[in-house]
């Protein structure tokens, strides 16, 4: 049930990124929302649950993206590992930490995207607008990332409660 819910969230975000955000001026500079979900998984869910989901999310995004296949999966996986590393010596519920982690996540993803593309294709150049894209995404992430993480946590907790009740009813 929980996996189903997380996959549903992933599909909703992919649809948002591919059909809503490109046509709306409001979300024109928005960052990859799945980054925030990956951070959430790293902070609040078990590794057993997190790793398959993170790789799955990456593959789904890679299917819809024009980049090298595996680019998103790579970015999400290593970001997840970084977040896991952070949780070893930082408190998960530290609200002040969340904007910084969201910011780091967005910068990390863009770094991986541009870096790996440049490494694999020697002819490719970093676009002039790269700095602007990253700055806009970072601002978005800094302010909305923590809220989204809290929303994910709240909805996930509610969903888990609901799923447990249903399981008990069926048992």
């Amino acid at each position: 049930m929980t996996y189903f819910f997380h996959i549903l969230v992933c599909f909703c975000m992919v649809v948002f990124h591919t059909t809503i955000a490109p046509y709306s001026s409001l979300f024109s500079g928005i960052y990859d929302l799945l980054i925030i979900f990956v951070i959430y998984l790293g902070f609040f869910r078990s590794v057993r649950e997190g790793i398959p989901l993170v790789i799955f999310f990456g593959i789904v995004m890679d299917v819809f993206s024009g980049g090298v296949f595996g680019l998103h999966a790579t970015a999400y996986f290593w970001l997840y590992i970084c977040v896991l590393g952070l949780t070893l010596f930082m408190r998960k519920n530290n609200v002040l930490l969340l904007p910084v982690v969201a910011l780091f996540g967005v910068i990390f993803e863009n770094f991986v995207m541009v870096g790996i593309t440049a490494l694999l294709d020697t002819g490719s150049a970093i676009p002039e607008s790269a700095v602007k894209i990253i700055v806009v995404q970072s601002v978005w992430a800094f302010f909305t990332g923590p809220i989204l993480i809290m929303v994910f946590k709240y909805v996930d907790d509610k969903w888990e409660k609901f799923a447990k009740t249903r399981e008990k009813e069926f048992a």
Partner: peptide
């Protein structure tokens, strides 16, 4: 649909 990443240009 369009590419979810600003770095690549694909459409569905």
């Amino acid at each position: 649909g369009r590419d979810p990443s600003p770095w690549f240009k694909t459409i569905i």
